[in-house]
Computed example of a mutant assay.
Amino acid sequence: MNRILAAVAVVCLLATVALGLVYAGGHSPGSLDSAVAGGVAGLGRTTFDVLVLPTEPYVLLPAIAVVTGSCAYLRRWPDAALAVAGPAVAVGLNTWVLKPLFDRWKDGILVYPSGHTVSLVTVLAVLVLLARPKVLTAVLGVLLLCCAAIGMIGLGYHYLTDIVGGTFFGTAVVTGLRSVTPRRVPAPSAG
């Protein structure tokens, strides 16, 4: 399992870099970015405001606290550490390393990879890795991410490519950390 997670982390990191290099130093959207923005434009400000809520710190920080607290209660210390470290490491690296490195701007703000997306995806990735059933959690996470993406694009926060880059990077950090996190292996049954 650790090798699979490490491979996912490497592929997602490479995808983040590849996409970032395509748009590095840019100020304008690509054709896909423009098409998607045009496609969601008619939904309305209130809809966008609601859709973007899952990316806000006042939603994500309590979610991190609940996951961390639940893991601590169950004495799953490596899982509790992942719930805190995944988002913290990803947001820190994204803000202070990747955004300045790729230098993609929108309305005077660095936008690639999307910090809103990195924040949301890291929390969702932690949930997928820790929760059961994983498939249901993953499907709900993807739906939530798609809704948030529509909101971010509609409000003009990000281009679609910023969101895709943020998704890759958030996934890379959490799966990478999980691949090196020690986990308790259940003892074989004695009976």
Rank of each mutant, 00 (worst) to 15 (best):
V67L: 13
L43T: 10
G154F: 05
V66M: 09
A37M: 02
F168A: 09
I109R: 14
S119R: 00
L82P: 15
N2E: 13
A190H: 11
T175W: 06
V40A: 05
R184Y: 11
K99S: 10
G115N: 00
M152I: 09
N2L: 07
Y58F: 08
P62L: 01
G191E: 10
G166S: 05
I109F: 06
S70L: 15
R104L: 01
A88P: 02
V91R: 12
V128P: 08
T95Q: 08
D162C: 09
A37D: 05
A88N: 05
P78N: 00
D162Y: 05
D103T: 12
A187R: 13
A65V: 13
G30M: 02
V91K: 07
L177Y: 08
S70G: 14
A172T: 11
A9C: 03
T117Q: 01
V118M: 00
L155K: 11
V135Q: 09
R178V: 15
L140H: 11
T117S: 01
A81N: 04
C12A: 06
P87Y: 09
A18M: 06
I150T: 08
A7I: 03
Y159L: 10
V36S: 02
R45S: 12
L110N: 06
V142T: 10
W105H: 14
V121A: 01
L124W: 01
L93P: 08
D103C: 09
E56I: 12
A6G: 06
A6M: 04
T122A: 02
L120F: 00
A41D: 12
G92V: 12
